[in-house]
């Protein structure tokens, strides 16, 4: 077990987004979080990396046990140093080239010499198929390319878990494939990932565990086989029907 969230509660104003959600991730897992929009799945992912502060709950990361309401900046950073995050809107650093984006976490946060970091950065960019785009600024790249830089940036630090928050939702349909292929490659290599996505065919292909979240609770969890072909809950069935149409 590398990551475990338990009993996570979160309110935005008077709206309760998460009502006691849990999530367990083992090394090598590719976990997919499914659910209708507004169900709280993105919030859960953001809480796991402290981009959102939970009201209540616990987080266990490897040997670290944290009460979510009271995490220090140091503890946040120590978890972030061991994880990667891929955003729906890429969130690349606009003032840095593709390569600089990828190595920023290495040189600034981890004090790796620039020369050494550049070798790592180039290798990772090559892996996501952007070997010819090192010196391009985000504004000069397509959405699919930007997201692949985003994935490369998350990979470069060799994190123990990568969180991906709807990595293809902001992309034109024709660009989705190139990003999914990169993620698939990571899955095959055994990278531990937690993915929030609506791409259920892809989820079935890469993940070994699926969580279905609705109205702030985990309604159902199981293997892709269980959830996609044999859902127990009526709501899961309805959701899949709607999303497949």
């Amino acid at each position: 077990m590398i990551l475990k969230l338990e009993n996570v509660h979160k309110k935005f104003g008077n709206t309760e987004i998460l009502k006691g959600v849990g999530l367990e991730v083992n090394k090598g897992d590719v976990v997919t979080i499914l659910g209708p929009s507004g169900s709280g799945k993105t919030t859960l992912l953001r809480i796991a990396n402290f981009l959102e502060k939970a009201d209540q709950g616990t987080l266990q990361f490897d040997d670290l046990h944290l009460q979510l309401g009271q995490v220090s900046k140091k503890q946040m950073r120590s978890v972030r140093m061991r994880t990667g995050f891929v955003f729906q809107n890429y969130n690349l650093f606009s003032n840095k080239t593709a390569l600089e984006n990828v190595i920023e976490g290495l040189i600034t946060a981890r004090n790796i010499p620039v020369k050494e970091a550049e070798i790592i950065g180039k290798t990772v960019l090559e892996k996501v198929g952007l070997a010819s785009r090192y010196d391009f600024y985000p504004s000069q790249l397509s959405g699919g390319q930007q997201q692949r830089v985003g994935i490369a940036r998350a990979m470069a630090t060799e994190p123990e878990v990568i969180f991906l928050d709807e990595p293809t939702s902001a992309l034109d349909p024709e660009l989705i494939g190139e990003v999914l292929n990169v993620i698939k490659k990571l899955a095959i290599e055994g990278t531990t990932m937690v993915i929030v996505t609506h791409e259920i065919n892809f989820a079935e292909l890469v993940s070994n565990k699926v969580y279905f979240i609705e109205n702030g609770v985990v309604l159902e969890t199981g293997t892709p086989q269980d959830i996609f072909y044999n859902p127990k809950e009526k709501r899961t069935q309805q959701f899949l029907q709607r999303i497949r149409r």
């Binding site: 990396n49 972030r80 955003f87 969130n91 650093f93 920023e104 946060a109 630090t157």
Partner: peptide, 20 residues
């Protein structure tokens, strides 16, 4: 989002401000 991306890359608030 760029501040959040900085945090996720392991940068501190000051580092993200300074660099990004």
């Amino acid at each position: 989002g760029q501040l959040e991306a900085g945090y996720c890359a392991g940068l501190t608030f000051i580092q993200t401000m300074h660099r990004i």
